[in-house]
């Protein structure tokens, strides 16, 4: 697994309060009841802090799965 994927899952683990082992590399918002819009705001800030990037409004709307978050970070040059 890529380091970015691992770090994203760790952030999700912190935000959702779920052990990181329970967050699959293809986990989506469907997999966790508390992955809601409020969690997404925390997630957005956590991602910006962790990776030193600034996300756009469009990016924020796309924080829907681990894969998507990794894809967004890849577009931002994070690898």
């Amino acid at each position: 697994m890529s380091q970015v994927n691992q770090r994203v899952r760790q952030l999700l683990s912190d935000v959702l309060g779920v052990p990181v082992e329970q967050i699959g590399e293809k986990a989506t918002r469907d997999d966790f009841q508390n992955w809601d819009s409020a969690a997404n705001v925390q997630l957005l800030m956590a991602i910006e802090g962790e990776f030193g990037v600034t996300l756009s409004v469009d990016d924020a709307a796309d924080l829907l799965s681990v894969e998507l978050i990794v894809a967004i970070l890849t577009e931002r040059g994070v690898s």
Binding site: T28, R29, D62, L64, S65, E67, L68, A71, T74, E75
Partner: peptide, 12 residues
């Protein structure tokens, strides 16, 4: 369409 666009569309 980029992998990201496809992933996002699938999730919507």
């Amino acid at each position: 369409t980029s992998p990201r666009q496809q992933l996002a569309e699938a999730q919507r």
